[in-house]
Every structure is written in structure tokens, then in C-alpha cells.
């Protein structure tokens, strides 16, 4: 039902958006986002208190074709929890876990024209997954591993809601379109048999120049 509603809204916005037609088409995109990262590891909540931790980031992309964007993204996430004794059970100590996923991605955007209200997208790419882990007062480890990711989401064109603000953004910053977007991402990365990937649920703003 939700899927059908989204498809209907996208199609509706694709045709009704003609009313807002602009002359220029953007080439560059900048976006920033924040959300939650849910690691694949099953015992995460037991050691870190929650199955998810905050993640934020930003990305740049270039539009190669009218429906294909390609770009790079940098993220950062951090969680704090406890470790466990080497030879005994029980969680003790303080552990700080940080991730920096660097991604190269391509997105296919369901955009029929520049002023479409709702734009669904799907894409994926390469992930360099950098991790850093500190056991407070004991040791630090760090490293990185190759991985992949797929992502999908929905972008809402804000210019359609407030055109005067949209014109202001263009005059002042050269922003042609502003989108609020909701993103779901699945990252796959593994090192020594340990799955470092997980799911991301993010909200972000994207600006097209």
C-alpha cells in the first residue's frame, strides 16, 4: 500500500511539476545527512546499549546524465560501550568505536524533469570502511577494509513548497534545487570474518547547483 502510494505521488508530482519548470539544469550536488547506523553484528546492543548509533556525513556528486549522479561521500559514526574479559564472562571497561565510511557511488534517480516534487532513487557503489576502536586505558586498534553498499530513498523537492525561498537560495547561493531526502543504505564490509557493515537510516538535505 505504501509502495503504491509513493509510486502514485511520484507520478503525480512528475506531471504536475511542469507548472514550476525552470530553465537551468543543475550539474553538481552537495548533500549532508544524519541518521542511525545499525551494525549487522548480533550482540551489538549487549555491548553498546543500543542496536544503533548516530552517524552523519556529507557527499558531493556530479550529474552525468539527467537521471544518473555519481559522487563521493564521507561519513562518521561513533558509539561507546563495554568490552568483555578475555577469559571470563561479563562486560567490563569502556570501549569507544568509531567508523569513517568513504564511498564512491552512482545513483539512478527517477526524475522526469527538474521540478518533480518527489524523486525516488536507487544506487550503490564502493565503500572503504575505516574503523577505530579504543579500549580505554588499555589499547587502540585501527584499520580499514573494502566493501560495497546499496542505497535507496526518496527526495522531496522543497522549492515546490516555498518558491520565494527557493529563488532566494538561487540568488544568494546559486542553489537551483533543494531536496529533503530519506535514505536507506545497506553496507557490506568484512574483515577477518567480522561483518562491519550494517543498515543506515538517514535524513538529509541535498542542494543542486
Amino acid at each position: 500500500m505504501i509502495f503504491r502510494s509513493v509510486v502514485f505521488l511520484c507520478l503525480f508530482s512528475a506531471f504536475s511539476g511542469e507548472l514550476l519548470a525552470e530553465n537551468k539544469s543543475p550539474s553538481w550536488m552537495f548533500e549532508f545527512h544524519a541518521g542511525l547506523f545499525e551494525p549487522e553484528l548480533s550482540d551489538w546492543e549487549q555491548h553498546y546499549g543500543s542496536s544503533k548509533f548516530p552517524e552523519l556525513g556529507f557527499s558531493f556528486a556530479y550529474r552525468f546524465l539527467s537521471v544518473i549522479d555519481a559522487g563521493v561521500s564521507l561519513g562518521y559514526g561513533k558509539d561507546e560501550g563495554t568490552g568483555q574479559l578475555l577469559n571470563n564472562s561479563g562486560t567490563v571497561g569502556e570501549v569507544e568505536y568509531q567508523i569513517i565510511p568513504i564511498e564512491v557511488f552512482a545513483l539512478l534517480r527517477g526524475r522526469l524533469h527538474e521540478n518533480q516534487w518527489l524523486v525516488p532513487y536507487i544506487g550503490g557503489g564502493y565503500t572503504r570502511f575505516i574503523y577505530r576502536q579504543e579500549i580505554v586505558d588499555q589499547s587502540k586498534v585501527q584499520g580499514s577494509v573494502n566493501g560495497t553498499h546499496v542505497r535507496m530513498g526518496l527526495q522531496l523537492l522543497l522549492d515546490a513548497l516555498d518558491q520565494s525561498a527557493a529563488h532566494g537560495m538561487y540568488r544568494r547561493w546559486g542553489v537551483l534545487n533543494s531536496y529533503l531526502y530519506f535514505d536507506y543504505k545497506q553496507t557490506t564490509a568484512e574483515i577477518d570474518g567480522i561483518a562491519l557493515g550494517g543498515k543506515s537510516y538517514k535524513v538529509g538535505m541535498m542542494f543542486e547547483f
Partner: peptide, 26 residues
């Protein structure tokens, strides 16, 4: 006294001169 193991127990890829200079082990 006992060593604490973090979860997950990740490998340390070390940080020798080249790794440090080029940023990552691989």
C-alpha cells in the same frame, strides 16, 4: 588483572611509516 577484549574483536593493521603516510594498511 585481565585483558579486556572489545566487541567486535577487530584486527589492528598497525601503523608503520608507509601505512601512516598513505593513510591505511591496504
Amino acid at each position: 588483572p585481565e585483558k579486556i577484549v572489545a566487541y567486535p574483536d577487530l584486527p589492528d593493521e598497525g601503523c608503520f611509516i608507509a601505512t601512516a603516510a598513505f593513510g591505511y594498511y591496504s
